[in-house]
Design a protein around this nucleic acid. Structure first.
Length: 269
DNA sequence: TTATGATGGAAAA
DNA sequence: TTTCCCTCATAAA
């Protein structure tokens, strides 16, 4: 369920629930049990997000590195934790709050140096104040790869996933099959600025909304869209449905093994 | 009851 | 480019 906005939100939620307090750390499922013992009872000192990576820092210097992958997720609750339901890889608990992590791609205990190495492999994250969009532009403007693939490449840009990729390209009328090196500098500047704005909004809302006011369900007199991802979008997972702007059927294809969506009219080649 | 898919990515081939 | 991993909700049978 997670693109970068969710991970930054989770960093804030973990900080709020557990920051500065000693935390019981366990792994009801068992797969993180040995590592959990090493930090059990320590104070949670920091919670930080870079791209889709979440880092929980404990008082003695160890970090828990979490990557949710396609379907990992956190659930939070107040009070002590009830008996674990399903496969809970990591559980954090105080007298006041608890959180369960299920289905992560990664949940591992690492050092500060290892954390720095993970961050060093990533491109700029539109949600971080220290992001340098020039680093992404250098790679994009030199690449023959499609802009669709480049936006999903975490070494180029960190935190953008399939939904933001599809939506930001739609919002600026950019055909996803264009090569990165054929993008104009002004187009890249617009994409970056829009990602910063859209993803910040996503952190606050906890969902991805990309539809401009003039195209919202209320403005267009159509029913709101009910989809698993929970937000209002132009093209993501709207294959064969009419484009909200021009009415052309939205197209889809498998592109680098991910589903790509675009409007062939609004995003003409 | 079984199959499928999903906002991801590493590793193998 | 393909395979594999992690989990669970929903769809198909």
């Amino acid at each position: 369920m997670p693109e970068g906005h969710i991970i930054h939100r989770l960093a804030a939620e973990n900080r709020k629930a557990f920051g500065g307090r000693p935390v019981q750390v366990s792994s009801p499922q068992g797969r993180f049990a040995d590592d959990a013992k090493l930090i059990d009872g320590q104070v949670l000192a920091e919670a930080e997000a870079t791209g889709k990576h979440l880092f929980l820092g404990f008082e003695e210097g160890a970090w828990v590195h979490i990557h949710l992958g396609l379907y990992g997720g956190f659930t939070f609750g107040t009070g002590p934790a009830p008996a674990a339901v399903g496969m809970v890889r990591l559980r954090l608990e105080t007298d006041d709050a608890h959180a369960d992590l299920r289905g992560p791609n990664t949940c591992a205990l690492i050092t500060g140096a290892e954390k720095a190495a993970v961050a060093a492999r990533l491109g700029p994250d539109p949600l971080r104040a220290d992001a340098d969009p020039e680093a992404a532009w250098r790679r994009i403007s030199a690449s023959r790869t499609t802009v669709a693939a480049l936006l999903m490449d975490q070494k180029v840009l960190a935190g953008v996933g399939n939904v933001y990729r599809a939506e930001v390209l739609f919002r600026h009328g950019i055909n996803p099959h264009r090569a990165g090196r054929d993008l104009a500098r002004s187009e890249w500047d617009t994409i970056w600025a829009d990602l910063v704005a859209l993803m910040r909004e996503g952190v606050g809302a906890g969902r991805i909304d990309t539809v401009r006011p003039e195209h919202t369900p209320e403005a267009m007199g159509r029913p709101p869209r009910l989809d698993d991802h929970g937000g209002e979008v132009y093209v993501y997972r709207r294959a064969a449905m009419p484009c909200l702007v021009c009415g052309t059927d939205v197209r889809t294809e498998s592109h680098a093994s991910r589903n790509l969506f675009w409007c062939p009219t609004c995003q003409a080649a």
